[in-house]
Design a protein around this nucleic acid. Structure first.
Lengths: 232, 232, 232, 232
DNA sequence: AATGAATGAGGTTTCATTCAT
DNA sequence: TATGAATGAAACCTCATTCAT
């Protein structure tokens, strides 16, 4: 991984924020193996139900039916609908955040590295578009969940900003660009393009999309397209 | 206005789509001045209530209290909560769509013209951020409203694409860029930057933002920054 | 007419009962010719609306639309929905009650006279089935309107009972039959057959129906089928 | 029982029709004894409330008060007011339809058998007059419930027609009478006499009524009053 | 740990009638 | 006499959550 510490810190932040949001101290881990299985089962069922119906339209009843479990059992494992949603989000978080970090790819140019980032972002979004759309729904509905959404967003944006800063230091990117702000612009562009085109219109990611987004990113920060990656 | 016919056509589309969505044929116009005033009063109250609470959390009751009007009066003027929301949206549409069309500005360069577009977009978003956020909420909640959101989006995107095509024809923009797709990328970037930074974080539009977004737009399509506007 | 005085008395009773039911003292006759016309217009519209929708499902709004008249006008002429319904009923009463009285028909046998009564009853019901069904609806819904329905019913029943008594006196009908009770049975049979078969199933009156109902009536009271009508 | 299969088939038809009418697939049977008890309790309370107030004037609130149960409980057991009404009707159906089938009575004459039918009909109506009146109300109000009412009616009418056909075959009833039509006339007479005199006027069934109705039935179809029942 | 019945606050909508002009 | 806006009580239904077993 590229920035494991940073990502871990962000994940910790989000976990904490989710706790606060859902009003649940800590996950009350089940005592025995049966409990663990039921919990997992519920999480899976809830994930599917949320994806299928959205957070708001998905009633607890829907989750119960999906899981074929009684109401009492549900509330024994999760304090509320909010709580199970928080758990679902948290579970899917690692892969979402780590999956896009460009790691062991061996490409010669910085430009290619960015391209690979974009490609992974789109692919990752495509695979997880179900939950992403639910997250967007809740962020646009519940003001206090919005903060969590912003933490996630900033986690991505900071990574991009860091890259820009490094590139500016090497003299291969326009130094008049504000890295933090440019990170926000890039994340806005990618996030919303994916949300709308992949999520809403269900277009599959294509190399044309990757090219275009890479182009805006690279040109936007004035990156030297011929600059090589510095070997570690 | 620049493309008045096109905008008119889009507005018509949206009005029609809103009619279908809200399940209401046509607004039953009040028949005397008192009725008109009450209707306006209700629209204003609803706008404020929707902005304050969001569409979902805003009950008809909330609108009634805001307007200090009885339940019966409300339903005499609007068939449903959906219907008044549609009316609110429609009312705010003109300014939103027309307000961003670059018209009689006198600037020497194409780049400046784009910059002016960006500036107006941010300013317009800032002023109407309340409703914009509600629209986003509903689009992320009600699948059938999403279509309306997409019509609005595409209206903007098409305008941008049209510009790119003209610039390519003049040889002042990179001809390898797909104008339609680039339009979507640009609108994604601008929309979501505004939504998040102006809407969520309540940052006021600044010249730095304008510069940065203009930069991504201009560089992204490979525009010749020195190309002059063709006088009409 | 056969029993003009009796019928008049019944109609008076019903009018009075309708007044009480609807809570309206007397019809506040309009002052000028314009008022009279509007009133008639409203009555006609209400009749059609009630027939089309039934009393309960017919809102005041429906009547207004049918008449193309404003709410205020409506309430200027009729105190309430009940009141206009009462007026509608009253207006249609004469024909309903008098239309079935066997008058100047020249038939040789008593049996034929009964047959003619049955025929007229069915024909009259068929023509007025719309309102009849509405009346039945209200009678089955509003306990206090039920009394009015019973007055109408008894008016018919008494006429039949009177005939039976006369026939018994002449020795051409079975004297063990209780005339009043038999009248109720006959009116039950005719009323409900008509309500169900003509009203609900929309079967048109046929000579077979007339024959069969006549048969039950005549045989039920043990009438001598060959007995001649006594000339007046 | 006399025609058990036929009655069963009719009951099935009605149950199905009620399902469609109420928009409820199948009653979600409670899963333990407590639930069953509450369900029964609700049914009983609803029956009383419907009888006391009529279907239309009886709000769900009224049922809740009668049963002393919360809104949520009600809707956990029954999907809607329509649904519980359908259940109430269905429950009272068996006894109503089966209770009038002349079974193991030992009487010498066909005439006596009919008399017994009439007696049972009146007695059964008297006991269930509350619900019968509600059914009539709904049938006269809701066009789609009318169909159900007609199925019930035809079930009775067919049974009577069957008897007439058998009697005609034996040569003990007038063969010129159309059995199906006569069945409708007889059921109209009995139903409406009972509805009005027992239901509305609350007169108790008497032997005089039985005699008179039997008389109209027997004479109407031209039955030989001395014909003996054929032993099975 | 699991079950399923019970709760009740909260939401949208209808409609007969009154009132100001 | 006519108009049409305004009223407010009352109806049905949903659903997250609690509780008894």
């Amino acid at each position: 991984m590229r920035f494991p510490e940073a990502v871990d810190a962000d994940i910790e932040d989000i976990t904490r924020a989710l706790s606060v949001w859902s009003g649940v101290g800590a996950a009350p881990t089940p005592k025995n193996v049966r409990g663990v299985r039921t919990r997992q089962h519920l999480l899976k069922a809830a994930t599917e139900a949320f994806i299928r119906l959205g957070y708001l339209s998905c009633s607890v009843e829907d989750i119960l039916q999906e899981a074929d479990v009684s109401r009492g059992t549900f509330y024994a494992h999760f304090k509320s609908k909010k709580a199970i949603f928080a758990a679902v989000i948290e579970e899917s978080l690692d892969s979402r955040l780590r999956g896009t970090a460009v790691s062991e790819v061996d490409v010669p140019l910085v430009r290619d590295r960015i391209e690979e980032s974009v490609r992974r972002f789109l692919d990752s979004y495509w695979r997880g578009r179900g939950l992403s759309m639910v997250i967007e729904q809740v962020a646009n509905t519940d003001p206090s969940f919005r903060d969590i959404r912003l933490i996630i967003r900033d986690s991505f944006a900071r990574r991009i900003a860091k890259g820009i800063r490094r590139q500016q230091a090497r003299g291969i990117a326009d130094s008049t660009v504000d890295p933090a702000e440019a990170g926000l612009v890039i994340i806005a562009m990618m996030t919303n393009f994916a949300h709308t085109e992949l999520g809403w219109r269900e277009r599959r990611p294509s190399e044309e999309m990757v090219d275009l987004l890479t182009r805006f990113w690279v040109q936007g920060i004035g990156l030297d397209e011929t600059a090589p990656v510095i070997s570690r």
